[in-house]
Amino acid sequence: MRINPRFKRSSQLAVASFAISSMVASGLVAQTMEEKGFEVAARSDRSDRGFGDSRADLTMILRNAAGKESKRTLAIHTLEVADESVGDKSLVIFDSPADIDGTALLSHAKILDPDDQWLYLPALKRVKRISSVNKSGPFVGSEFAFEDFTALELNKFDYKYLRAEACDDLQCDVVERVPRYEHSGYSRQVAWIDQTDFQIRRVDFYDRRGDLIKTLTLGEYRSYEGGYWRTHRMEMVNHQTKKSTDLLYGDYTFATGLSDDDFVKNALLRIR
C-alpha cells in the first residue's frame, strides 16, 4: 500500500509507448483505442520519473453520512525504485489519533504480485509481516481502499481511450482502466487526465457489479522543482454509503536523503 497522490507510475512500457506514439505520428499504423488509452496513461506516468525520494505530511478527514468528522495525521516517505519491474518503497507513519501514534506501515510495491508489507506496532515494538491481498478493504476506516493508495504502476491496468472533454478550466482525456491484478474491488475505473500537465483530475470507481461506487477528485496541484506535479487535495466520495474522506497534503520535500536503509524492516524500530 502506498498513500501517494501521484496516481500513476513509470513503468517499463514507457519505451514501447514512445515507439507506438512515434509510429502513430508517422502514420505507419492506425492506433486502437486501447493503444491510445495506454499512451495517455503512460504520458502522465512518465511525467513523474526520476523524482528520487519524497516526504510529505498529510491530514485525513473522515466524514460519515451525517457529516460528522474525525481526523488523522500521518507522514509518508517514498523512495523511487529505479528497477521498473518492481514498484516503489514507501513508509506511512501515523501521528494521530494519539493512540496510534508511531504505528507504521512499510511497503515494497510490486506490479502484479501482492506487495510485501510490514506493520509496526509500537506498544510491543513488534514488526509484523502482514498479508497484502486485502486490496479492496478500507484503509484505516476511510473511504480509500488499500488499492486506491497503492502506487498505480502503469502496468497494473489495461486501458481504453474513451473521449476528450472539458474538465473545469482544462481539457481532459478520459481513459478507462481495468485492474489486471488479483483481489481488486473494482470492475473498472474511469480517469480524467488533463492535456496540459498530464495530471489525473478525477477518477470514477465502479464496483464488481459494475455500479458506480466512488468518485475521487484531485485538486490543488503544484509543480515542484524538477517539474514534478503533486496534488495537495484528494476528495473521495462514496456514492453508496454517502461517506467521504479528504486527504490534505502539506508541502512535499524531495531529495531528503532517504535511501534503501530507511525502507528495511529494522528501520521501523527507529521511527520514534
Binding site: 515494538k125 513488534r126 514488526v127 509484523k128 509481516r129 536503509d261 527507529r270
Partner: peptide, 21 residues
Amino acid sequence: WRYVGDGWEILAGLERVFWGV
C-alpha cells in the same frame, strides 16, 4: 541514545526488543 550510521546503528541505555511471530 541511538546513533544511526550508514547501514548500522548503536544503542545504549534501556530498550524493549521484541522477537517472534
